[in-house]
Design a protein around this nucleic acid. Structure first.
Lengths: 241, 241
DNA sequence: GGGGGTACGTACTCGCGGTACGTACTGCGA
DNA sequence: TCGCAGTACGTACCGCGAGTACGTACCCCC
């Protein structure tokens, strides 16, 4: 049937008689193997399309091992989800740290984010199936890290004003802009010519940010908390062109 | 076990001996009942959380009827998906037709879209699970109708220029803005105070659109097709503030 | 009025997630 | 060094649920 325990350990580069090796090392290796195989299969075939049997077969263990390390299929998916997200955050942060100037850092962050959304694992596990499997609030919670980058950038672009911006309005701006960036990444990933598409996307994002700066510099005031608290705001349309 | 055929027909308000009634009417009624029950259950419990047994029990038919009308669970979900989307499009179009002025129409369309994204059925079936179950390209295809509203609006805001805008760039703008609107709806739906949140969202969207108009009127040119075709564009950042 | 086709109902299979339980190995304390 | 407890699995099984095969009643049209 399945390979013997000794053969498996041999394949993992460990002594077949593990008298000397640390036991926890075996355990961690098994767990990591499960997560890595699961990431590959979930990315290729999706959550529902991947059976636990396929995962344990790929990792050359059995369901007993899987259920020893994880509470079930969802928990395993969540582990994969966290891993993919962590890799994405690392990628974005590394890109930003290569820049000195705050503005360049922000641009690098945006580019990094658009890049990340194009990774197959990120698209499938985090964007496509994550919300349906784990609930979108769980995704939001996890994505909070990369969201912060966008949040700070928006605050920076809208900032430099005397009275502080209404926090909920800032949150709204950030959320909207975050959704815009996600769509931008999707647009590039779905495009037949990713290079050309990403150039368009950068132009578009730059144009939008430029517009926000123009609005700010033109003195078009955002409403304060008291105006927003009142029931009927202004018609909410643009300044007369 | 289950109710007899006669009892079911009685319950549906049809003669228990349906000698006079049209046969196709029974069929359509069964099909619609299945879709309606499925919409309710899919919205409440999600795709994976809803069993076909629960659906056919709710519709007071059996799996034979379901598999006669639909190719399987996915096909039934797709029918629900199309129904929910069609209702959403109708809602948006109706809101727009109440306005005369093109700008007011556009604003009504945006508001209608943000409204729609807050409907539980739309959120769950179209936004949350649709992409994972049917694939995001299928969702894109279906959502094309409401996307057109956004597309036209963006073209309108960016338009009024001498040389026409690069089509792919316009597509990028629309996609990004569409994503922004989706996030806006999600923001409102997730908020504890939807009224306050939707006011913020309208302000933010108005501010962004105003920025785009300012950019246009300030003569900040978007690159043409030939510049975009060249490999390295400008750094893609905002105009100096 | 009978034959064919539609619109179901019934009974079953099978894949898959989850569970119960057995077991080998390992590190530790006496 | 010997037991002993706990870990890290393996194995066998259960139940649910999607899909299928097949039977049947009824309607419509000739």
């Amino acid at each position: 049937m399945s390979k013997s325990s000794a053969a498996r350990r041999l394949r993992q580069g460990l002594p077949s008689v593990p008298g000397t090796g640390r036991r926890a090392q075996f355990s961690d290796r098994t767990k990591r193997a499960l997560v890595e195989v699961a990431e590959r299969l979930f990315t290729e075939d999706g959550y529902a399309g991947t059976s636990l049997d396929a995962i344990v077969a790929g990792a050359e263990v059995t369901k007993g091992a899987l259920y020893h390390h994880f509470d079930g299929k969802r928990a395993l998916f969540e582990a994969v989800f966290e891993r993919v997200e962590a890799q994405a955050v690392g990628r974005i942060k590394r890109a930003m740290q290569e820049q000195e100037d705050p503005w360049d850092q922000a641009v690098a962050g945006l580019r990094g984010f658009v890049d990340v959304v194009q990774q197959p694992a990120y698209r499938r596990v985090v964007v496509l199936e994550g919300p349906a499997v784990l609930g979108h609030e769980r995704v939001r919670e996890q994505v909070r890290t990369s969201f912060t980058v966008v949040h700070d950038l928006v605050a920076n672009v809208l900032g430099d004003r005397r009275q502080p911006i209404d926090p909920m309005l800032l949150e709204g701006f950030s959320t909207i802009f975050f959704g815009a960036l996600s769509s931008a990444g999707e647009f590039v990933a779905d495009s037949h010519d990713p290079g050309a598409a990403s150039r368009r996307v950068e132009v578009a994002i730059g144009y939008i940010l430029g517009g926000l700066q123009l609005m700010r510099d033109a003195g078009v005031a955002l409403p304060g908390e008291q105006e927003l608290a009142a029931g009927a705001g202004p018609d909410g349309d643009a300044p007369d062109a």
